[in-house]
């Protein structure tokens, strides 16, 4: 093996590089979690809207706010629109879940790598 101080330096550089990558991965993960939270709240809002729409009589007057104007909507159409949106949000939630899973495992891997490098650096520093 080459001299230990050179190896220690190398390990240190590697550690720094990995630490930066770990930070980045963490940032990505927290962004993913934020997106997921937003999807959940959208889902809840749409669920409560469809619940209200389903309670209405067939001849109820429903309006949708489009820009600054309230536009009259057919109740059946409104229901189908909201249901479709709920479907879409559900799919997005599933997608976001699988994305989060992979991000989490990536994070764990990076963390393990960091700990390994740190230990190595420590043993190099303690060595003769």
């Amino acid at each position: 093996m080459s001299n230990p101080s050179a190896e220690a330096q190398q390990t240190k550089a590697l550690l720094e590089k990995n630490f930066a990558a770990y930070k980045l991965a963490q940032l990505e993960l927290s962004k993913g979690i934020q997106a997921r939270t937003q999807l959940t709240s959208q889902y809840n809002e749409n669920e409560s809207v469809i619940e209200e729409l389903n309670r209405l009589d067939d001849d109820a007057n429903v309006f949708k706010l489009i820009g600054p104007a309230l536009i009259r909507q057919d109740l059946v159409e409104a229901k189908s629109n909201v249901s479709k949106r709920i479907e879409y949000i559900k799919n997005e939630m599933d997608r976001s879940d699988s994305q989060l899973k992979s991000l989490e495992s990536k994070n764990k891997d990076k963390e393990a790598e960091l700990i390994k490098l740190q230990k190595k650096l420590q043993s190099l520093a303690q060595g003769p």
């Binding site: 809002e45 729409l53 007057n61 429903v62 309006f63």
Partner: peptide
């Protein structure tokens, strides 16, 4: 009255 039930939908009640 016109009630805002969310996501831009308003219902006459």
């Amino acid at each position: 009255v016109l009630v805002d039930i969310g996501t831009g939908y308003y219902v006459e009640m």
